[in-house]
Design a protein around this nucleic acid. Structure first.
Lengths: 349, 349
DNA sequence: TTGTAGGCGTTATCAC
DNA sequence: GTGATAACGCCTACAA
């Protein structure tokens, strides 16, 4: 069962086998599969019967080799555990699959070196296009990508100078907007909890910091970060820690994503800290839980599925030689104010 | 940039190009890449320099074709959105990647027909092995898989007669155990909320039902299901609906997974129903949130990552012709009692 | 509409 | 240790 014998009797059927059974030439079988309209009805049926009878499945390696078309799109994401990428992948798979493309997916574990290795692996499969995450590639990785001479989309964030195409949003502006919104609700002392601290999280923090600095309200003592991956458990721990180091003097905390924010929210309940009256809480990414937890969690909503769809569409358009409407698409975001933050104060009051 | 011209100057470097630059034969270059120890140090270095200089990346299609080894493992899951599969995939990717295998992943959207199509797609890539979900394949799909003559692991559930290898656990017994545990805590009228209703959820319900029937406590009026995919929002709706149709007479509700259970929990808070005193709640799959929400959610924990790792290991062992210790592995599960259910009554009392 | 010839880039086999 | 030759299974180009 699990062996790999290649004796003549049980080897995989080939185009030639089908051709022989159907009493036609190999190329006719190929046509029945790839261009059925170019074969007469009678032959088509005879060939189809032979295909079914032999259980013939085309050998995609041979096809790729001969045609220089692999029908594969390479996709590289930094983490399989971060569910943020689920929605994006769904968008990519939906569009790619509907158009006859397979997706070869790799996980770089947030490491540019590993990404370089993975991209090399992907390229060895002769993908017709690549979708990769962010702009932190090694120089060697960039060179490979450029040399491959295929459409490339960098996704998740807006880049100053993308390799080719780009879809995402500005994490810097999102972080800044969160700070501004919190200030608008009357919060004065704002804290930040950040984990993993990849480029995008760093940008959120940079924007957040900038907004506070320009209103003279930034206090580095209210920021805690860790390179560890974020989780609900970690959010709880960091929340407790930040509350204790700041002596409970904070008005609001911005958590760099919803895992952390939910952890903080649950921990605050255990610590008997009232959200939002004692303390406001804001997350990032807008997980489904965030909208339904009590109190519901203010968060930054990102159209992730749409981002995946857009990335894939940009690829397909490029492969079809359609003129790309835009090489750079800002997919946007939206700060969704919910119960975990206070309502904006009436400026007229 | 996004074109696909194949003029001589910019085409991808081949083994022959490298060989020419290094002034050796093609096969020597191949050896440097695949069996470096079989090439003298001097040649190895010269070839390596040529490889770097040309940015040579091997063509895996050609390699697969010539060697009949693709280094690809095909993986088929029913849903990319169901985060249950994230952990499993992580396990598979970790093990496969560490052993030089690529993963080709497809999503069947819980449809056997689509699965058949996707499996065909996977097989056309000449995978060296396959990992698929559950045992609900079409006959045609089974035939293809058998005919491919490669190791196959069916995962997620224990099957009576697997195609080849199998790793999972009994959803029937898990559902039954939940009912028994709830009965032990003194609950008498048990409800069930189920969504998607795929085979595995049906088995959970069957086990749950059986346990209740054998103690004369089963009431079909306390069971509601829907074919819709589960979500937190849906959990809230179904909870509200079940409470209303049963007139609030339930002691406990078993939700077929944690999405639904969390939705129910959040909705109960809004409805001012006290968990667990008014009503006990139990989920399934033990998401991270479940352990940290207040009250924490009783759920059935499943070692998903380990299941993925095990599936991949079984595959690797089979590919190495190691005698499989077991063709069927029960990975188990554990009902984790938390605050959302009552504590077992002291039988001595 | 159908078929023939040749080659895609790599590796297995066998020779040196 | 190194190289020549012949597949691997399919598709493009051209011919009939």
């Amino acid at each position: 069962m699990t062996g790999r014998n290649r004796n003549t009797s049980s080897r995989r059927a080939t185009l030639a086998d089908v051709a022989q059974v159907a009493n036609v030439s190999a190329i006719t079988v190929s046509r029945v599969i790839n261009h059925p309209d170019k074969v007469s009805g009678e032959l088509r049926q005879r060939v189809q019967e032979a295909i079914d009878m032999l259980g013939y499945i085309p050998n995609q390696s041979a096809s790729s080799l001969a045609s220089a078309r692999s029908r594969v799109i390479g996709v590289s994401i930094p983490s399989l555990s971060n569910i943020v990428f689920n929605d994006v992948l769904r968008g990519i798979y939906d569009v790619a699959g509907a158009n006859g493309y397979k997706v070869l997916l790799v996980d770089t574990h947030y490491s540019p070196m590993e990404e370089e290795k993975m991209v090399r692996t992907l390229l060895s499969q002769s993908p017709e296009a690549m979708i990769i995450t962010g702009g932190d590639q090694t120089r060697a990785c960039e060179r490979m990508l450029l040399k491959a001479n295929i459409p490339v989309v960098q996704m998740m964030e807006i880049l100053d100078s993308p390799l080719d195409m780009n879809v995402g949003f500005s994490h810097y502006r999102a972080g800044r907007d969160v700070a501004l919104k919190l200030l608008e609700t009357g919060c004065e002392r704002l804290g930040f909890i950040g984990a993993r601290m990849d480029t995008r999280v760093q940008q959120r923090l940079a924007g957040f910091t900038e907004a506070l600095q320009s209103s003279g309200k930034f206090d580095p003592g209210c920021v805690i970060t860790t390179p560890e991956p974020s989780s609900i458990a970690l959010g709880g721990e960091m929340f407790r820690s930040l509350i204790s180091t700041t002596g409970g003097a904070l008005d609001a905390i911005f958590c760099c994503n919803d895992d952390l924010a939910l952890g903080a929210l649950f921990e605050s309940q255990r610590m008997n800290i009232k959200i939002p009256s004692d303390l406001a809480l804001c997350g990032f990414n807008d997980f489904e839980t965030s909208a339904y937890v009590n109190p519901s969690l203010t968060s930054v909503h990102v159209p992730r599925y749409e981002m995946g769809v857009t990335a894939a569409r940009m690829i397909l358009d490029a492969l079809d030689n359609k003129p790309a409407l835009e090489k750079k698409v800002d997919i946007g975001y939206e700060v969704r104010m919910r119960q975990s933050t206070r309502t904006a104060q009436d400026p007229a009051k």
